[in-house]
C-alpha cells in the first residue's frame, strides 16, 4: 500500500506543473541573486531548496488531508499514508537537489564538492517532514505558508553562532555549507550532521504523531447480530 501511495503522490506532484516550476525557480532565484559570492550563493541555494521542498510538502499534505481521512476510515494506515507521501516528496526534492548539484559542479569551483551533495540531501530530508509537521499543526495553506516563511526568513537572517539560529531546523544547512565552501575544520561538518540527525528525528516523530492523531479514525466495536 505504501508504494501505491508514493506512486500516486508522485503523479499528483508531477501534475501541478505551475507549482513545480515555482518550486524549482525559488532556489535558482536565490542562487542567481548571490552568484557573485560563492559561499553565499550555495548557502542561499540550499536554504531555497529547503524552503521549496517544505512548501511543496505543506501543500501536498494539506490538499490530501480529506482524501487521507477517507482512506483511513476504510482501512488505510495513517503511518503508511505519511510514509508514502513523504517518500514521494523526498524523491521530488532529491531530484531537484541533484539538478542543483549539477549546476554548482558546472559553475563553481568548490573546495569540497562532495559536501555540497551532503548539504543538499540533508536539507531535503529535513524539509519534507518539516512541511508535514506544519501542515498537520496548521491545516490551512495560508497559515502554513506564513509559518514556513517566518521560520525560513529567520533562518536566513539569524546569526549562525546565536542560539536562535541553532534552534531553527536548517541550522545544519548553514554549517554544512560553511564546511563545503569555506576553509574551515571538520567540526563544522560534525556539528552539521549532528544537528541534522536530531532535527530529522524530531520532525519525523512530530509528523508521525500528528498524522496518527489527526487521521486515525475512532475505534468502533462491531455490533452483535
Amino acid at each position: 500500500m505504501t508504494l501505491t501511495i508514493a506512486a500516486t503522490s508522485l503523479r499528483e506532484i508531477g501534475r501541478r506543473r505551475a507549482a513545480l516550476l515555482l518550486v524549482i525557480a525559488l532556489p535558482l532565484a536565490f542562487y542567481a541573486a548571490r552568484a557573485d559570492q560563492q559561499g553565499q550563493a550555495i548557502r542561499f541555494l540550499a536554504l531555497g531548496v529547503g524552503w521549496a521542498v517544505a512548501t511543496l510538502s505543506l501543500f501536498s499534505h494539506v490538499n490530501s488531508r480529506h482524501l487521507d481521512r477517507r482512506l483511513t476510515v476504510v482501512g488505510a494506515s495513517p503511518s503508511a499514508l505519511l510514509i508514502g507521501r513523504q517518500a514521494a516528496l523526498a524523491a521530488t526534492g532529491l531530484a531537484m537537489a541533484a539538478g542543483y548539484f549539477g549546476l554548482i559542479a558546472l559553475t563553481q569551483d568548490v573546495e569540497r564538492l562532495w559536501a555540497v551533495a551532503v548539504l543538499l540531501v540533508t536539507t531535503v530530508l529535513i524539509a519534507a517532514p518539516l512541511g508535514a509537521v506544519v501542515s498537520l499543526v496548521l491545516p490551512r495553506e495560508l497559515e502554513g505558508a506564513l509559518a514556513l516563511l517566518a521560520v525560513m526568513a529567520t533562518q536566513m537572517l539569524a546569526d549562525p553562532e546565536g542560539t536562535l539560529a541553532k534552534a531553527l531546523p536548517l541550522w545544519s544547512t548553514r554549517e554544512l555549507a560553511a564546511y563545503a565552501v569555506d576553509p574551515v575544520g571538520g567540526e563544522y561538518f560534525e556539528r552539521g550532521l549532528l544537528h541534522f540527525a536530531v532535527v530529522v528525528v524530531l520532525c519525523s516523530a512530530a509528523a508521525w504523531t500528528a498524522a496518527v492523531v489527526r487521521l486515525r479514525p475512532q475505534a468502533l466495536p462491531q455490533p452483535a447480530p
Binding site: 500516486t8 476510515v73 476504510v74 475512532q218
Partner: peptide, 27 residues
C-alpha cells in the same frame, strides 16, 4: 464512519464499510 467522535451514546458498526463523503471525496 468513525471520522467524527461522538460526544455521547454508543456507536457499533461493521468493520468493512464504504464511505462517500459529500465533499472532498476525490483527489
Amino acid at each position: 464512519a468513525g471520522s467524527v467522535k461522538a460526544s455521547g451514546g454508543t456507536v457499533e458498526r461493521a468493520a468493512r464499510i464504504g464511505y462517500a463523503p459529500q465533499q472532498h471525496g476525490v483527489a
